[in-house]
């Protein structure tokens, strides 16, 4: 504190209060005594279950699709790479409701992909659980790709050279050397993506609607319950808050920082 002008300290404290007071308000208003009873209702249990399934599914899809994309961005010089990276970033800054609208127009029953998909297979994505997963993947994937790309750039690539001189094919190098060496990065990316998927609201409600048991995830349930059962909404909110704090604590841990195995020492 020594040497900090009091005016700056004062404004900084206000900023901190601005961030913390709402959370404190939430915790103060939470009916702690009835927390488990509130969380055990049909609506909240359904929302919890659906959120868990869809967020994990979205994380898995983001990881399976995201690793090759991150690898391309980190390892291959191709024309338009900067543009591709910018496009990957777009869902990070795009208003989720715009993302949901975009998904609806592309994958909806009259969309450029949705229409042929329905006529060929009878599958309709909007307003289904798959729609929730797709919306969550759409917003979560950039977190995974960017984190993994950073890990790929940060790792000591000479381990890959060593593997190649031992006769490993490119795929074997990726599977047995590269991915294990960037495991902390993969985990961090997956955690960030999962947290983002768990909290997804705008794209989901736009693309998948708000049907309990089918598309009503925790954030949607909170939004709905605020009208009817305020205490249940608060209980669900506290659960989401706790999960986010846990994710932050895990990401802060030493083993997720650069400097773990496989990264080049300065």
């Amino acid at each position: 504190m020594h040497g900090a002008p009091w005016a700056i300290v004062f404004v900084a404290v206000i900023a901190l209060a601005f961030l913390l007071i709402p959370l404190a308000g939430l915790l103060a208003a939470t009916p702690w005594a009835r927390l488990f009873e509130l969380l055990a209702s049909d609506v909240t249990l359904q929302a919890l279950r659906l959120s868990l399934i869809t967020s994990v599914a979205a994380t898995v899809i983001a990881a399976v699709l995201g690793v090759p994309l991150a690898w391309m961005l980190a390892r291959v010089e191709f024309p338009g790479r900067a543009v591709v990276r910018a496009l990957v970033l777009l869902p990070l800054v795009l208003p989720p409701v715009v993302g949901g609208t975009a998904l609806l127009t592309a994958l909806g029953r009259r969309g450029i992909i949705g229409a042929p998909l329905e006529s060929l297979t009878g599958i309709t994505l909007p307003f289904s659980t798959w729609g929730v997963i797709i919306a969550a993947t759409f917003v979560a994937m950039p977190f995974f790709v960017l984190t993994v790309e950073g890990a790929l750039r940060g790792m000591d690539r000479r381990f890959e050279d060593a593997a190649v001189t031992l006769g490993a094919s490119r795929l074997m190098v990726l599977r047995r050397v590269t991915l294990p060496l960037i495991a902390p990065g993969l985990l961090a990316g997956a955690l960030l993506a999962w947290a983002r998927a768990l909290g997804e609201f705008g794209a989901t409600i736009t693309f998948a609607g708000n049907f309990p048991g089918r598309t009503q995830t925790m954030p949607l349930a909170i939004y709905t319950l605020l009208e009817t059962d305020r205490d249940a909404a608060l209980a669900l909110s506290v659960v989401l808050l706790a999960i986010c704090v846990a994710v932050l604590l895990i990401l802060r841990d030493q083993w997720l920082r650069p400097g773990a195995a496989g990264t080049r020492r300065p």
Binding site: D156, R158, F159, D161, A162, A163, V164, T165, L166, G167, A168, S169, R170, V177, P180, L181, A183, A261, G262
Partner: peptide, 19 residues
């Protein structure tokens, strides 16, 4: 490519796979 050559290489700091 290196993977199809009949070579063995020992690198300066050995690069044993840490995992």
């Amino acid at each position: 490519g290196a993977e199809d050559r009949s070579i063995g290489m020992v690198f300066q700091d050995y690069l044993l796979f840490p995992h």
